[in-house]
Amino acid sequence: MALPYRALAFAYRAVASLVILIGIARVTGLWSADPSWSSFLFFTVQSNVLCLVWMVWSAIVTVRDMQTKGWYGYSTPSARGEGFVMMAITVTMLIYLIVLVPYLFEQPGASEPFSLTDNLVHIICPVLVIVDWLLFIPKGSFRKIDPVLWAIIPYIYLIFAFTYGALGGDFGGGARVPYPFMDVEANGVGGVIAWIVGLTIALIAVGYVYYVIDHGLARLDQRRIAAKRSAAA
């Protein structure tokens, strides 16, 4: 249940890479005389950079495969790797929509919620990666443990953010934490733990939705192939 056309996959990934790069440049102010370097401390920007690297790498692999294997077929550095990247940016989208927008949270370098800049890094980039997975990645490679493993990515960020803030790091405007739900002074230790546990459960649940879709589409593809073989026989 994926499109086996490498030229189309390359074109999509090239355009997606450009769009993601524009989002990163806008939210960080890279095109301005005074970039907001503190933006790179946020999971939003880090996950977008991860998506940019992955999409560019995928485009390179696609070109290589076109040269060595032909124009027909699938190309990806890793189907399971795409799952990790997709989940990382899904975390960005879901936390933005569920947690940050209600707070009217503004990240340094970004403008108000649902502005073009915010949409590029919080919504458009995630959609581009999810669509790439749906259209161009062979299904059936995700393992049952993967949604749990995917949760490691935001936890690594949590460790970084809490450590950086505890050592006196500034996330902008004197803030010692990057996101409101991580603020112990405002929410209390129990409140922060409750937020993290709740978000972990929600994100793992979303991961298993991806797992079910992955294997469901794989089974449909197998049935389609079996039907073609039966008809040919």
Rank of each mutant, 00 (worst) to 15 (best):
T44P: 06
I60G: 14
F84A: 12
V121F: 09
V85F: 02
R80V: 12
E106H: 09
V121H: 01
R64T: 14
V101F: 03
L52G: 08
G81E: 10
S115W: 08
P77F: 06
G83Q: 08
F105V: 09
T62Q: 07
G81C: 01
M86W: 00
S58D: 12
Y103D: 13
G109N: 09
M93T: 04
A33L: 06
G81A: 05
W31A: 13
R80L: 11
I124Y: 10
V45M: 07
G83S: 10
T90V: 07
F42Q: 01
F114R: 06
V85T: 01
Y72I: 14
D34W: 04
K69A: 14
I95F: 05
P102E: 02
P102V: 05
E106G: 01
A59G: 13
M66Q: 14
N119I: 05
F40R: 05
P102M: 01
P108K: 02
C51V: 04
P126L: 05
S38A: 02
E82C: 07
V53R: 10
S115P: 12
V53Y: 07
S115G: 14
Q107E: 07
L128R: 08
F40S: 06
E106Q: 13
S32H: 01
P102A: 03
Y96P: 06
P113I: 09
V99R: 02
W71L: 15
V27W: 05
T117Y: 07
W54A: 13
F114A: 04
A88F: 00
M87L: 09
V99K: 04
I130S: 08
F114E: 04
R80K: 14
A110D: 13
F105R: 03
I124D: 10
C51Y: 04
T90E: 00
V85Y: 03
P126V: 07
L104T: 07
Y96C: 01
T28V: 01
P35N: 09
V91K: 00
R64F: 14
T68A: 13
A110L: 13
V121W: 03
T44K: 05
S32Y: 02
F40C: 08
M66V: 09
A88S: 10
V101A: 06
V129Y: 04
P126H: 05
I124H: 08
A33E: 08
L116E: 15
L128D: 06
W54Q: 11
F42M: 00
Q46L: 07
L104N: 15
L120Y: 11
P35I: 00
T76F: 01
S75A: 15
T117N: 11
F84L: 07
W71A: 14
P77C: 09
T68Y: 12
F40W: 04
L30C: 00
G29L: 05
C51N: 09
F114W: 12
G83A: 08
Y72C: 08
L30G: 05
E106Y: 01
